[in-house]
Simulated assay, not measured.
Amino acid sequence: MFGKIRAWSQRHPKLVDSLWLAPLVGLCVMTAISYTGRAPIGLGGYLALSAALLVPLFWRGSHPRVVFAIVSLISFFQWLAGVDAFPANAAVLVALYTVATRCVFRWALAACLVSEFGIFLALVQWDTVSLSTFFGCTVFVVTIWLTGLYANTRHRYLEGLEERAERAERERDHQARMAAAAERARIARELHDVVAHNVSVIIVQADGAGYAIDSDPEQARKAVQAISRTGREALAEMRRMVGVLREDGPGAADYTPQPGLAQLEELVHGSGLPVDLRVTGVPQELPEGEQLAVYRLVQEALTNTLKHGGPGARALVEMEYGMHELVVRVTDDGRGAAAPRSPDGHGLLGMRERVSMYGGAVQAAPRPGGGFEVLARLPVAA
């Protein structure tokens, strides 16, 4: 119940302020007709001065110190003009409570001292300065001030509880993600062991079938059947474990084959840059993993050109097939060394990791004449 009221009040702060001020506004209206001060200012002056004191209170939630300063100065000039205090001057106490509720202690203490000084000036104006009267007014002002301080302390305490609850929830989610990552890493290791074992069995059976295909066809047929059975088991096991690794991820149901060199031309044309692709030498068949590494390297290099090359930058992708290595070079004519670098970028590191898996190396640096170059060399198996 109280939580709903608090949430509603937070959504409608202006309306809540209006409801709190309604009794004071009503009191000012009821006393307007019968107002007769020592230095009469007339009904119009009374209403104008009351409005000048009450209207700023609608912004006391967002600007408590400014509102307190405004109503205090208006009350001070009212005292200088010899106009008696009236109900609207209670705006000083309302603003005092707001300062004590929303500001740090030094501002709250300063507002309390200003209010005490205002009480003293009012008593001097009324010629009722006495220790008992001043003490009674002081108790009233200090009570309002302490109530505001208590509300401030409670508000900060509740904020601290909410912050700790949010932090505990974030830590819990983080621990859950870490546990899930650790479990998936364990599953990945098990997947490696299972696939490695089954592939070893397949290799042994295939070698046996090759030796027995002429001398013992029946044994060769059994070996081929064992190869088929073992391959199906390995594929089923791999699908199960990969399905566990992929669940809850962005590609949980994505079984699209990974891109390779056949999709390189499509990548170049869809990069959003003017790019030329040149292939020299005799293309050779590469393992799918190595093709993926080359594809990701070109993709990351073109992405860097798009991000850092500047407007009008062009790129050139060159692939040179040699007898023993494949050379991949991606160059551009962008800003090169003058381009700002992202402090949290990991693209070049990812390139090196992918290429190093296949015994290759990557060099990435600005070109002397301008632009940037990414050069990768990957060995090609005979």
Rank of each mutant, 00 (worst) to 15 (best):
Q125N: 03
V124F: 14
L149D: 04
E183D: 09
E116N: 11
W126F: 14
E159V: 03
A185Q: 04
V99A: 00
E183F: 06
A110K: 02
R186M: 04
Q175Y: 05
W145L: 00
R184N: 15
L93C: 05
T147Q: 14
L109C: 02
F120L: 12
T147K: 04
E169N: 08
A90V: 05
H155W: 07
G136R: 10
A91M: 06
F140G: 11
E116L: 15
H174I: 05
Y150F: 13
V142Q: 14
V99M: 00
V141M: 02
V94Q: 01
L158H: 08
Q125G: 06
I119K: 03
T133L: 03
T128Q: 13
F120D: 03
E159Q: 13
G148P: 00
Y97V: 12
A181D: 07
A188Y: 09
N152L: 02
N152E: 00
H174E: 14
S115V: 05
A90H: 06
L93G: 09
T153C: 09
E183M: 09
D127N: 13
F105Q: 07
L121E: 02
A180R: 15
S130N: 10
R184A: 08
V139F: 11
T153V: 10
R154C: 00
R172L: 13
A180S: 10
A180V: 08
R177K: 15
G148Y: 00
Y150V: 12
E162T: 12
Y157Q: 14
L149V: 05
A122T: 14
D127T: 09
A179P: 06
I144L: 07
R189M: 10
F105L: 14
F135N: 10
T147S: 15
A179M: 12
C103N: 08
H174Q: 10
E171P: 07
A95Y: 01
C112Q: 06
A185E: 02
F135E: 15
E116P: 06
A168T: 06
L149W: 13
V129T: 07
E116W: 15
W145Q: 01
A108Y: 01
A181H: 12
A111S: 02
F120V: 13
R172P: 03
E162R: 12
R156D: 07
E183P: 02
H174K: 12
E171I: 13
C137P: 08
R156M: 06
A176Q: 14
R177G: 04
F105T: 09
E166K: 15
I119P: 04
V142P: 08
L93D: 03
L109R: 03
L131I: 09
A179L: 12
V114M: 10
A110Q: 04
I144K: 01
A168C: 03
R102V: 04
H155Q: 13
Q125K: 01
F140H: 09
V92F: 02
L93W: 11
G148M: 00
R102N: 06
S132I: 08
R102H: 11
R170C: 01
A122D: 15
R177W: 14
D173A: 11
G118T: 07
L93R: 00
V99K: 01
W107K: 07
W145I: 00
F120H: 05
R177T: 11
Y150N: 10
A95R: 00
Q175R: 08
V104D: 13
F120E: 04
T138K: 03
L131Y: 04
S115C: 12
L96V: 02
V141T: 11
V139I: 10
E166F: 09
R186V: 03
E162Q: 11
R164Q: 13
A181N: 07
